[in-house]
Design a protein around this nucleic acid. Structure first.
Length: 299
DNA sequence: TTCACTAAAAGGTTGTGGTT
DNA sequence: AACCACAACCTTTTAGTGAA
């Protein structure tokens, strides 16, 4: 595991930022900003209940215009005074209304979730495929046959071509990383944090995997006392080489056998980390944690 | 969505406990 | 209730090539 070590400090270990691909990177950025959103292919699953969403106020942008909403509401109701009787909605109408609301929520979540820039092909195979395909393009081959033929060609490149395309692929990988980094930095850490929350929600609501955006600036959650114990336990040489799941079971057993005073050391480490979390939360996001807000409200 | 294939990222595993 | 924190490592998934 070389990604993001334990107790990784903020801003350390950022992605490499190659300097050789500036032009490409600007192009990518432009493409991104012109907003060609990723094609959405959703098989619209019927979500029976979105009740829990109403409980969540994580996405403040959704309620950005309470004034206008209020205004249009009052205006509407005054219009309705002519035919002063309000007919109760039929079941079908209720369904429709609910469906519309649901769609609006999804749309709002997608906006909050943000769309990272499209990536350039980063494998020699993809590049070879594109190249060979453009050569065969005009032939009247059946698309599937053409596809297979091109794959075969892409697999049997000359040594020179393979070398060339591997170099290109590497450059694209670097350009992709640079483009992503640049795109990321155009948003605040808080926006990215909220985007990730929206992504989690979307993944649940929609049959699609909205993966979290990777961002070094995000504040790492405090690690539990047990996490610290586990780290210590695993680093002991006596457990190395044993199957992972056995070792983890042993660790849990040992943890539960500890006395309260033995646990204190780890609890202190947690307390320190919690303090770190609260401090960084304020610094990076510009707002205190929810827990801090609640505690202050009680005072 | 299909076809073949690659590179890179995420998931599963084993736990506890704090955060949202 | 669900998510995230920590660990290592092997396995699975994804996104990307183009076009119908």
């Amino acid at each position: 595991g070389s990604s993001g070590g334990f107790l990784r400090t903020l801003h350390v270990g950022a992605l490499p930022r190659p300097t050789g691909a500036i032009g490409l990177h600007n192009q990518l950025r432009h493409i991104c900003l012109t907003g060609n959103a990723r094609p959405v292919r959703l098989q619209a699953p019927a979500i029976p209940s979105i009740q829990w969403m109403a409980q969540s106020n994580s996405f403040a942008t959704a309620s950005a215009d309470p004034e206008t909403a209020k205004a249009s509401k009052t205006k509407k109701s005054s219009d309705k005074t002519k035919n002063n009787k309000k007919k109760p909605l039929t079941e079908a109408q209720k369904e429709k209304k609910k469906d519309q609301k649901h769609k609006a929520e999804i749309a709002e979540l997608k906006k909050t979730a943000l769309t990272p820039p499209k990536k350039l092909p980063a494998s020699f195979f993809s590049l070879a495929f594109a190249e060979k395909y453009s050569a065969i393009k005009d032939s009247s081959l059946d698309p599937k046959e053409a596809f297979k033929a091109v794959v075969a060609q892409a697999k049997s490149l000359s040594a020179e071509d393979e070398e060339r395309l591997k170099t290109q692929a590497k450059a694209n990988t670097a350009a992709n990383a640079a483009a992503y980094e640049s795109w990321l930095r155009s948003y605040t850490p808080l926006q990215i944090k909220e985007a990730n929350a929206a992504r989690r929600t979307l993944s649940r609501l929609v049959k699609k995997d909205y993966r979290p955006l990777k961002d070094d600036r995000l504040v790492r959650h405090p690690a539990s006392a047990y996490s610290y114990y586990l780290k210590e336990f695993l680093s002991a040489s006596e457990h190395q080489g044993k199957p992972v799941n056995e070792t983890f079971k042993d660790a849990a057993k040992a943890w539960n056998a500890l006395t309260q005073s033995e646990k204190n050391r780890y609890n202190e480490l947690f307390a320190e980390d919690l303090a770190r979390y609260e401090k960084e939360h304020q610094e990076v996001y510009g707002v205190p944690t929810r827990k801090q807000t609640q505690t202050r409200a009680q005072l």
